[in-house]
Simulated scan of single mutants.
Amino acid sequence: MTDDAPRSPLGLAFVGCFTTARRRARGQGIDVYRVGAGLDDWTHLGRVDGLDNPSFLVTDPTRGALYTVQGDGAAATAFTVTPDGTLRSLGSAETGGTNSVHQALDPSGRFLIVANYASGSVALMPVRPDGGLEPAAQVLPMPGAPGPHRTEQASAHPHHVVLSPDGRHVLVPDKGLDRVFILRIGGDRLEIASEAVLRPGAGSRHIAFHPGGALAFLVNELDSTVATCRWDAPSGTLTPLHCVPTLPPDFFGASTAAAIVVTPDGRFVYASNRGQDGIARFRVADSHLEPAGWTPSGGRDPRFMTLAPDGVRLLVANEQGDSLAEFTIDPGSGDLTQTGSRQSSSPCTIAFL
C-alpha cells in the first residue's frame, strides 16, 4: 500500500448491524469508525442505536449523507455526516412496502430507489435538497409467478437495486420469481423495460457489473450459483450465458449464496456462501467464469462483502460470526489472504465516506 492510495473523502467507515431477536441478532445499530487508507487503523468514533436492523447502507459524498433501510421494517432513514463522524438524523420516511432490504440513489440524486423484499415492490422515494427523504412517491410491484421453493419463493422478493453503468436502467434481482427485472428511469417514474428469466428455484439475489459494462454477474441464493449475463445497454436487456456453482464439489451441507464482488480490473469475481462459510473465487474468461478455489470467510454466515476504497482489499461481514474479516487480493492470481479481523456484533453491511 502506498501513501497515494485512493481514500474515501472523509476516511469514515459505517457498519450496520442487525438488532432484533427475530434476526437472532446481537448488534446495536450503526457503528462509525475512522479508518486509515490501508484499513490498518480502525478507531471507533460512535454509534447510532435505537434503530432496528439497519440492513443496508448507502453514502452520498456530494451531500455528505448516509441512508439506511431497516430490515423487517417499512422505513428508510437519512443522516447528515459531519467531518468528525457524527451522524445527525434527517428523519425517516415510509418506503411503501415491508422488509426494505436494499437501496440506491438514482443518477440525479433526486430519488432513493428501494427494494421492498416482503411486499414484492420497488419504491421511488424523493430526496430533499438537504438530503432528507420523503415517503415513497411510486411503488412498483414486481409481477410474475413465484418459483418452486415453498417457503422462500411464496411471492415476489426483490433483493437488490443496481444502476446500469450508463445510469439509464435499474437492475433488480428477484429471489421469489427467479428473475432480474430491468427498470427504466424516466423523469420521476420507474417502469419495467424487460426481464431476464433464470432457472426455477435459483433465487436471484445480487448482481454486479464487469467494469467493461458488457457483462454482469448474478449470484443466485437458493441453488448457490453465479450466472454470467450479457448486458445490452441500448435495449436494456440482460441475457444469461453461463452458470457455475459457488460451492466446492466435496461440500454436502446446507448453504445459501449471498454476496458478489467484482475486482476493479475485471479479472476476478467473488461470491460468499453462508453455511459452507467460504468465499468462492472465479477468473473471468471471455463470457464465462472459471472456478479458481475457495477461501474460509473468517467467520459464520458471510452475508455481505465489499471492496475497500483502495480496491485491493476485500471486507467480509460475518453476520453470525460477529466479525469483520479483511483479505488482501493477489493481483496476479486473485487468491485471498486474510490479514485481519475485528469484532462486530451481527454485522450485515459496510459503507465508506
Rank of each mutant, 00 (worst) to 15 (best):
66 L>R: 00
68 T>D: 09
47 R>Q: 14
314 L>I: 07
298 G>N: 05
55 S>R: 05
106 D>C: 13
113 I>G: 08
202 A>R: 10
182 I>E: 12
325 A>H: 04
49 D>G: 13
111 F>K: 08
36 G>D: 13
8 S>I: 11
134 E>K: 09
111 F>Q: 03
37 A>N: 04
102 H>V: 10
49 D>K: 08
283 R>P: 04
90 L>Y: 09
26 R>K: 14
295 T>F: 00
176 G>N: 01
198 L>M: 15
2 T>A: 14
87 L>M: 10
33 Y>H: 13
187 G>M: 08
151 T>S: 13
205 R>F: 06
312 V>A: 13
292 A>T: 08
11 G>P: 02
161 V>I: 15
79 F>M: 06
153 Q>I: 07
136 A>L: 03
198 L>W: 09
86 T>M: 05
136 A>C: 04
299 G>L: 00
282 F>N: 02
346 S>P: 04
340 G>L: 03
120 G>F: 05
246 T>I: 04
76 A>Q: 10
313 R>Q: 09
92 S>G: 10
15 V>L: 09
294 W>I: 09
297 S>R: 04
170 V>I: 14
83 P>I: 00
35 V>Q: 00
251 F>W: 14
11 G>A: 06
10 L>N: 07
179 R>Q: 15
171 L>T: 00
236 G>Y: 01
86 T>N: 06
